[in-house]
Simulated scan of single mutants.
Amino acid sequence: MLAQIDFPGPEGFLGARASLMLDVVVLAMAVVLVVMAWSIVQARRGRFTVHKWTQTALTAALLVTVLAFEIEMRLFGWEDRAAGELGGSASPLVWRVLYLHLVFAVSSFVLWPAVAFLALRRFPNPPAPGEHSRSHRFWARLAAIDMTLTALTGWAFYYVAFVRPV
């Protein structure tokens, strides 16, 4: 039945109504959370250079992914896929979950790079604990919680919009 529907944009690979980029982002967020947790463990073990470069790479990858994601959403949209074969608009539940997700996604998009930028500016090279450590721990924990909530609400949105029967 799904194969008969002609959605705009490239098809995803997870078997849902989602596009290729949405499927990539769903899996990428799992990788981000694992790498983020591993990086935090590295910092706690005193491996600050490993933590620094892991977080720098993660920040760059997230910024590129968000850019690619936004380009695809602007070109192809998502609402037709969420509405499925019924056509029309996404359900009110889908919109509510999306708005909740956007609270965390937007704040993460601002907070995560800000924490990384300040760390790069305020920690010595090579990185070591210093005056900025206390502030960094507070804001980095907040950013990590925010990113985790971004992933969880993103997966919830993916489910209600593209997996759940319409």
Rank of each mutant, 00 (worst) to 15 (best):
F7M: 07
F7G: 13
P8I: 13
P8N: 11
P8S: 07
P8G: 10
G9Y: 02
G9L: 05
G9W: 02
G9I: 04
G9D: 08
P10F: 02
P10V: 06
P10H: 06
P10R: 10
P10W: 03
E11S: 15
E11Y: 08
E11F: 09
G12W: 05
G12P: 10
F13R: 12
F13C: 01
F13E: 00
F13Q: 01
L14T: 15
L14S: 05
L14D: 11
L14P: 14
G15P: 14
G15H: 14
G15M: 05
G15W: 14
A16R: 02
A16T: 15
A16S: 15
A16Q: 04
A16W: 14
A16L: 00
A16N: 09
A16F: 08
R17K: 15
R17G: 09
R17V: 01
R17N: 14
A18N: 08
A18K: 12
A18G: 15
S19Y: 01
S19C: 03
S19Q: 03
S19K: 08
L20P: 09
L20E: 04
L20M: 08
L20G: 07
L20C: 01
M21V: 14
M21S: 01
M21E: 03
M21H: 02
M21W: 12
L22V: 05
L22M: 14
L22C: 03
D23G: 07
D23Q: 10
V24Y: 09
V24M: 03
V24S: 02
V24H: 04
V24G: 00
V24K: 02
V24D: 03
V24A: 07
V25D: 12
V25G: 08
V25E: 11
V25P: 11
V25W: 01
V26P: 01
V26G: 03
V26D: 06
V26K: 14
V26L: 11
V26E: 06
V26H: 10
L27I: 15
L27T: 10
L27E: 04
L27A: 12
A28H: 04
A28E: 13
A28D: 06
A28T: 09
A28G: 05
M29N: 15
M29V: 11
A30E: 05
A30Q: 10
A30L: 11
A30M: 12
A30K: 05
V31L: 12
V32F: 13
V32Q: 10
V32H: 06
V32K: 08
V32I: 13
V32C: 07
L33W: 14
L33D: 05
L33C: 10
L33E: 11
L33S: 11
V34T: 08
V34I: 15
V34E: 02
V35E: 03
V35A: 12
V35T: 12
V35Q: 03
M36S: 12
M36I: 06
M36A: 12
M36P: 01
M36V: 12
M36N: 10
A37W: 06
A37F: 07
W38T: 06
W38E: 04
W38R: 09
W38S: 11
W38P: 00
W38I: 09
W38K: 07
W38A: 13
W38F: 13
S39G: 14
S39T: 10
S39Q: 07
S39M: 04
S39D: 04
S39R: 04
I40A: 09
I40D: 02
I40T: 05
I40H: 02
I40S: 00
I40P: 00
I40L: 06
